[in-house]
Amino acid sequence: MILTTDIRDAATIVIAIFGGVFFLVGTIGILRLPDFYSRTHAATKCDTIGAGSLLLALAVFNGLEASTWKILALVALVLLNGPTIGHALARAAHRTGLDPWHAEEG
């Protein structure tokens, strides 16, 4: 019994840290990347993998409860919505003629 909770806690910690790392990297990306497209790319990572992993960690931590299924539904929504929003933003920017950033030559 104690062993299973230990394993569950360990899995929770690992998944949560994984999500936290994605949030950290994504935030650095939003602050440091040069233009709209690359920043959108970074922000989408946070919203999708970061938030998804944190929710998954919560679901694991929660165990088999009714509320766990709600969390899993949220995970599914986040995984579906994040990329869609990133795609829509980048597409809208492209259609309105925003040029991507290029490294300066010379």
């Binding site: 929504l77 579906l80 919505n81 869609t84 795609h87 829509a88 597409r91 259609r95």
Partner: peptide, 14 residues
């Protein structure tokens, strides 16, 4: 402008 098929599919799915 044509609607992105991705967005269209997602909205209709959800």
């Amino acid at each position: 402008p044509p609607i992105s098929p991705v967005v269209s599919f997602m909205v209709r799915l959800l």
